[in-house]
Structures are given as C-alpha cells and as structure tokens.
Amino acid sequence: MEAEITAPVETAAVPPVGRRRRRRYSQLSRGDKITLWLMAGIPTLVHVVFVWVPAFMTISLSFTKWDGLKLGSWQLIGFRNYWAIFTVFDGKFFPALFNNVLLLVFLSLCSIVGVLFAYLLDKNIRGSAIYQSIFYMPVVLSLAIVGFIWKSVMYSPRQGLFNVVLGRTEQGNQIDWVGNAEKIFEFHIPGLDTPLGLTKNFAAILIAMAWRHIGYVMVLYLAGLKSVDPAMREAAAIDGCNEWQAFRRVIFPVMKPINVVVFVITVIEALRAFDIIFALKSPPGTKVLGVLVRDNLVGEGGGQVGLGSAYGVVLLLLCLGFIIWYLFNNYREVET
C-alpha cells in the first residue's frame, strides 16, 4: 500500500527545479513563495499524515502483542512477532513470499507481451482501434471484479467456459481451476519444511491477472510510441536497421520514461497483489503477503495486530528496497 501511494507522490513532490532556477529564488514575489510553499507543503503534509504516520505506527505495533480491542492494552514483546513469522509461520510466510516473487516474474513477462502488442498496434494495422479496445477493456475493471469474472465465467467447474469447451463438466472429470493446489513445480530449500512452488490454482489466477495487466501496459506503451518522432524511425531505416535493431537501438532508449513507468507499475502490482486473491477467498496455495497482513489484522476476535503488523513491515521493507533503488537511479539521471 505504501508503494502505491508513494510512487506518484514522489514524482510529484520533486518538481523539475534545476539549479539555475533555485538561484533565482529571491526574485520570486511573496505571493509566489506562498504558492510554492502551499503546493509543496500540502501534499507533503497529506503524505506524511496518511502514509508515514500509519507506517510508523505499524512498525511500532509490530513489536507488540495486541488483540486490537482496547487502546493501550498492548504489550511490548520485542522481535517475537518476527521470530514467529520466520519459524512458527514459516509454512505460511515463505510460500506467500514466493508467490509474490512468481507474480513479479510473471507480470514482467506480461509487460513484455504488452509492449509487443503496443508495438504491433502502432504499425497502423487494419482494425487497430478494435484491437486496442478489446485489449484495454479489462483494464477498466478492478482486479477483484476480474477475479469474480474469471472464477464464475471461465473457471467454474460446472459451467465455466474452459470446462465446457474441454468437455470436462461432468462430475468426476471436472477441472477445478481455482481450487486445485497441486504444484506444477516445486523445490525444497534447506532448513524449510514447506516446499516452495507454483500451484495450479495460482497459475490460473496469474492468467486472469495477465488478462488485465497486458492491456494496461499496452495502452501506456502505445501512448508513448505515438509520441516518438517518426523522423527517427526513418533515419534508422535509412541507416539500414532492421525492425528489431530499430526497436532495440532507437525506439526503446527514446522510450525510457515510459519504460520506467511500466517497470514501476509491474513491480508495484506484484508486491501489492491482494484484491483478486482475497476476492477469491484465498484458496490454498495462493496466498500472497498482502493477504497474510489482512488475515491477521482484520476479522473477528480482535486478530493478531502485532503479527499482522510484522507481516506489513516485511512487505514495507521489500517495497522500500525497491523505491530506494528507483529513486537512486532517477536522481542520478537528473544529476547528469
């Protein structure tokens, strides 16, 4: 969640104020200064209040044992929640983490497919607008809705499209797309009881997510491609580039800002994944970190606020690592 909010704000909070401009600050009128302060100050304040204050509260709570029922009834227990995550709940934590990793890998592949589609559609092939609409349509749906649609329309064992087409709707030979937690591949990590792997139902969910993600990336990239100066392609063609070389050496580098956006979106989608799995009631083998956070915090009986917060902090650290890397790269670019 942090990542989701942080990324856009971060870009917005760093207005393109170069050095030259900063020196002329004194020339700004009083009104200008107030405006600047307000424009920078309000988003910062909102950001701090709604992102960092809750984040620090979460971090604090992760060191406590608290049932969430009465304020002040928490007990400090040090790192015991983290200890529990890595030992008692290792059978939940590592598969969930691995699912996030799988998601990242898979969505990256989807992004590449999306870029490919965008590139093809940019060729002004016939019916391009129709293809665009078709691929973009799922993007207007929230992932939770995507989950419902796939579960009931595509994957339902009795009346789902896949089973009907495959003729597998009879009791006894149905394919249970969303429920089957058999692993497609698995491997053991020394010191970890639970094998890690990709379950069949998680793969099914991945495909449903791809349905949406490909269209999303495609539209973003298409918008970028439209803004590439046609003269550059011509120049590349005159210089004797083939299609791949033109893309790799000319178009792709020019598209750097869009590439970064696509990359950021892909990583964020992979880390924050929650809604589709929660909407499907997290069948066995499909949990991701976001679901574990929710499981421990929300629900009846007060929950395990400390433990849920600790999961949240682990997720935050993963996001932070990525964000820091991203900012570092971006700033370095501004410097040059």
């Binding site: 994957y155 064992p157 006894g172 149905q174 249970d176 969303v178 429920g179 937690a181 139902n201 069948p283």
Partner: peptide, 8 residues
C-alpha cells in the same frame, strides 16, 4: 464426497 471441494 464431491471431489475438489475447495473451489465449490
């Protein structure tokens, strides 16, 4: 029992 109850 009906098989694969988790998805039903």
């Amino acid at each position: 029992h009906q098989e694969n109850p988790n998805g039903r």
